[in-house]
């Protein structure tokens, strides 16, 4: 009974995780420019990976393995936030630091 409940919750979390990953990718197509696309990727993938990690936790054979799974999420978050900031800064750098304007030669 309890096992069945855990598996059901895992299934829901895995599907939710995959849905958010798919939505993050959808953002690449639907959003109009680099910065808004980064919004979609960072936020949706953070949540997607979080759900998948949660779903996998009950399968961890030991405490250390469970923490390792969580560590993967934390490290992926740090990489995601850092790379998002670096890409955003690079995009902004092309427009000489100011907001984008039509007559800006960069």
């Amino acid at each position: 009974m309890f096992d069945g409940l855990v598996i059901a919750v895992q299934l829901v979390l895995l599907v939710a995780g995959c849905v958010f990953f798919a939505l993050g990718s959808l953002g690449l197509f639907r959003f109009p420019d680099t910065l808004t696309r980064i919004h979609a990727l960072t936020k949706a993938d953070n949540l997607g990976l979080g759900f998948i990690v949660l779903a996998l936790l009950p399968l961890a054979p030991s405490f250390a393995a469970g923490f390792k799974t969580l560590l993967i999420w934390v490290v992926a978050l740090a990489a995601s936030a850092t790379s998002a900031h670096l890409v955003a800064r690079a995009v902004r750098g092309n427009t000489s630091g100011g907001p984008r304007t039509e007559d800006d030669d960069g």
Partner: peptide, 15 residues
């Protein structure tokens, strides 16, 4: 804070 904001609703740290 800058890194957190990039993962929070509607914000992305640029500079």
């Amino acid at each position: 804070l800058a890194n957190t904001l990039s993962l929070m609703p509607g914000t992305l740290s640029v500079h």
